[in-house]
Design a protein around this nucleic acid. Structure first.
Lengths: 191, 191
DNA sequence: CGGGCCTTTGACTGGTTTCAACTTCTGTGG
DNA sequence: CCACAGAAGTTGAAACCAGTCAAAGGCCCG
């Protein structure tokens, strides 16, 4: 059976079958326990992570000391603090496995080498970032357009399984409001 | 004198000098009047735009009928509705020149051809999107962390010349609040 | 079975929006 | 070059969305 990553890459670019093992060799598989950290705020983001199983979240800690989750990465998504990763300088985000998870880590230098050896992958990563860029534009649009309440309702309609899977306080943090308010919205919806 | 685009590309990848004219041939230079549209909501975003002079904004019109600006593109930035552009399907954004502007338009098919002919440019665009992705992460962080008032003060500190250049109602729309409130903030700051 | 974390509920507060009226600026035509 | 109309910016009052704080209830896991 071929890896999830391999399948994913083939969806976007056509890599000769025989190159695949060479490519996969650049990655380090990691098993993470619940709440295990991949990156801690203030450190350099050395790797770009591909999620095979479970899911990750990216967050930071604000002045008041509470965690704000700004992004999740589900199966088949990439995650990194790209400001930190791109310049290999200390960053402002932490990355953590919410549930027990499996990821493939691609170290910065490994990525550079890999891209030299297999330039076709530049296209793959270009498409990944372009897609993320598109997603950001849509997300920002949603944030401007909808009240917090509608953002939740929208999100719940679009990702019903995920809403079940994620703890409410994380979801609230991701949607940009307090757990108390989320609770209120849910109560209103029930009635 | 070499074009702004050429200089910009050379900052990120090393393209042989003799390839440059071939590359530039894929672009269509455009002169835009103030408030001229490059893209209207509901249409397919056929081109990716590089700003040579002046600046663009991307916006949409909400239920109440007012325009929400979600992004600006200054000199040396790229702009497109990437969800629409990537899939060549109708999109949710309009793009407009705020001032009189010059841009280089890269048509979707032209871009694909160009990337086939000069695969090194995949890297260039990968870096552009990665950078935009990084910027989105930072921007979202700012939106979670700061009150609207602080977002303005922050922005004004970081881009003082731009705050002068852009009309206030656009800036308010971009920062996600009403022109009236921006006015109030500025009044408070003066006193 | 117990402790701690998560969720719910309610009262109070304040940042931000809305609406409407007024002032200032800008550009265009006479 | 002035006049004027429309656009952009300001001000203030009322309403509301959402945050904060505190306390109680539910539930998972050791």
């Amino acid at each position: 059976m071929q890896s999830a990553l391999q399948q994913h890459i083939q969806k976007f670019v056509s890599i000769p079958e025989e190159d695949m093992s060479g490519i996969l060799a650049y990655f380090t598989p990691m098993h993470l326990r619940k709440k295990e950290n991949l990156l801690v705020e203030g450190n350099v983001c050395h790797s770009n992570y591909f999620v095979v199983k479970g899911y990750l979240r990216m967050f930071y800690i604000n002045d008041k000391g509470d965690e704000k989750t700004i992004q999740f990465a589900l199966e088949n998504w990439w995650m990194a603090d790209y400001d930190s990763f791109s310049h290999q300088k200390p960053g402002l985000f932490s990355i953590q496995a919410v549930e027990r998870a499996e990821v493939l880590a691609l170290h910065y230098q490994a990525q550079e080498k890999m891209l030299q050896q297999y330039p076709l992958l530049e296209r793959y990563f270009r498409l990944m970032h372009q897609r993320a860029h598109a997603a950001s534009q849509q997300r920002i649009r949603g944030q401007y357009n909808l009240s917090r309440e509608d953002q939740y309702l929208n999100f719940a309609r679009r990702y019903p399984e995920f809403v079940q899977r994620v703890p409410q306080y994380l979801l609230a943090s991701f949607l940009g409001f307090t757990p108390e308010y989320l609770s209120e919205i849910r109560a209103k919806k029930r009635s």
